[in-house]
Nucleic acid binder design. Structure first.
Length: 478
RNA sequence: GUCCCCAUCGUCUAGAGGCCCAGGACCGCGGCUUUUCACGUCGCUAACGCGGGUUCGAAUCCCGCUGGGGACACCA
């Protein structure tokens, strides 16, 4: 345990919280909570074309739903704010001056247009191999001209990145180029903004996606030139689509994977279940598959994080979701499903006795709230619709007569409880020389409208005498 | 194309030289349970990409190949 741990999650608000971003946030959060350190949220909104306030809100909501609370950041404040990059422009200005003085950057007066023109002269195939020729490296200051801050890559040898997950990664300094760090309007680019903020916010462990490994050497150079203490770095393997491609919203959804976190909420996932699935993705702890949030905090460690990219598995994620749902108490299940019933137009109170009883019967059959609400639907709806295929298959002249007889038995029954119903129907069945299996399916269709449901006696008991008898009679005459 | 990274069942993974003719989980398949569907339970199929080394011994170390992924912006 190390309460000095300071980690951060730094999303850019360009639409939604990406499932992979949620995992990055989770690993940082787990590490902070395990160490009783500090989890910082920083919004990297420097891409003014794509950043929106709406997506800032969406990200807050998603983190809130997941229960990943931050100790410093927007809404809660903290001693290292502001926590939106666009409100930290003076900080970058100051660091820019410092970096120039330290020899780690220079003012570049080349315009984008000039450089684009140079690039355009190259044959198309070589365009992306273009490197800045260093025109302004030693240019004297031009007080009247606009300038961008450009990194002065200097020194010999290689940059060593000692990654907690990947181990030693060496990059020759010669492979790095004089990239732009800050635009003429004072808005930083990623590598500068992230490094400056991580320094000024005292972040001592940077955990992010492995797609950022290539950025790290440039950032290490900034730390070095600023004489700032280097944080530890932990890069997380990528979460890919089932096809093994980088998970974009479009590609993910093409393959049936939800990429925005809010989708999981809409589909009725338990936040802890989603956390469990994404934590177990790239990280493991022996043979354990199901973890509570507390166990995740207790057991998480970088040593168990693997370096191989993985592919999202929808089936397994559904299983994890179901495991968590089934672990809930009846009361929690009832309370949780109420909004999802409401979404289907069914108003039920969370402490409704019938709901509590009904929930027991569908518990082993559900993987999400949405599933569960669907399974519960027939208990609470006044008029059910019969599944045509099921009705055709099981409701015929013979079964209709039996349903009518069963309705009679039930309507005169003294003890309308599951035990009472079972006893009475068993007596009736044996008097008829029948077994439950001969009438179960027709009864199921009549009572629930479907060919699959909880056990017939449970359904009868929970549904209540009035509705049960009415549905049986309705089906027997149709 | 260049640079970087990765490589165990279909998928997520255990495995840090002998404990592994490779273990767990999901999926799939089969049995049991059973009024349906689930849940549960028992079992089965299924992997160390290839080639060289090093070593008494390699899934584990080294090299090459192949395959995959990522990055190559005044995006993040």
């Amino acid at each position: 345990m190390d309460p000095n741990v300071r980690v951060r999650f730094a999303p850019s608000p360009t639409g939604y919280l990406h499932i992979g971003g949620a995992r990055t946030a989770l690993f940082n959060w787990l590490w902070a909570r395990k160490n009783q350190g500090t989890f910082v949220l920083r919004i990297e909104d420097t891409d003014q074309d794509r950043s929106t306030e709406e997506s800032v809100r969406v990200i807050f909501e998603a983190l809130d739903w997941l229960g990943l609370d931050w100790d410093e950041g927007p809404l809660v404040g903290g001693p290292h704010g502001p926590y939106f990059q666009m409100r930290r422009l003076e900080v970058y200005q100051e660091f820019a001056e410092r970096l120039i003085r330290a020899g780690g950057a220079y003012r570049c007066y080349c315009t984008k247009e000039e450089l684009d023109a140079q690039r355009a002269k190259l044959p198309e195939k070589k365009r992306d191999r273009w490197v800045y020729p260093g025109t302004c490296r030693d240019r004297t200051d031009e007080p009247d001209l606009p300038w961008v801050l450009r990194q002065r890559v200097h020194g010999e040898g290689e940059v060593l990145l000692n990654d907690l997950v990947y181990g030693a990664i060496r990059t020759p300094i010669s492979a790095l180029q004089d990239q732009v760090l800050m635009r003429a309007n004072g808005v930083p680019l990623y590598n500068f903004g992230a490094a400056v903020d991580d320094i000024s916010m005292g972040i001592n462990l940077v955990a992010r996606g492995s797609d950022h490994i290539v950025n790290t050497p440039s950032q290490i150079l900034i730390y070095r030139d600023l004489d700032a203490p280097l944080p530890r770095f932990a890069h997380l393997p990528m979460m890919l689509t089932p096809d093994g491609k980088k998970m974009s919203k479009r590609l993910g959804e093409q393959q049936g994977i939800d990429v925005p976190v809010e989708k999981y909420r809409e589909k009725g996932w338990l936040p802890d279940a989603l956390l469990n699935y994404i934590a177990r993705f790239g990280w493991s702890q022996g043979d354990q598959e199901i973890f509570t949030r507390a166990e995740l905090i207790e057991k998480f460690d970088w040593a168990q994080v693997g370096s191989g990219d993985g592919r999202f598995d929808k089936k397994k994620s559904a299983w994890v979701s179901g495991e968590h749902l089934r672990a809930q108490s009846d009361a929690a299940l009832a309370a949780g499903v109420v909004p999802f019933l409401a979404a289907r137009g069914l108003t039920v109170a969370p402490d409704d006795a019938k709901l509590l009883a009904a929930v027991k019967t569908v518990r082993p059959r559900s993987t999400t709230w949405v599933d569960m609400a669907e399974a519960l639907d027939f208990y609470f709806r006044d008029e059910i619709t019969l599944d045509p295929a099921a009705a055709q298959k099981f409701l015929n002249e013979g079964s209709r007569a039996q349903l009518a007889a069963i309705a009679d038995v039930l309507s005169t029954l003294d003890d309308y409880s599951e035990a009472g119903i079972t006893a009475a129907l068993d007596a009736w069945l044996s008097a008829q020389g029948l077994e439950i299996k001969h009438v179960a399916q027709p009864a199921r269709v009549a009572l629930t409208g479907r060919a699959a449901s909880p056990g017939i006696y449970e359904v009868l008991a929970v549904l209540g005498r009035e509705r049960a008898v009415a549905r049986l009679r309705a089906a027997s005459v149709a």
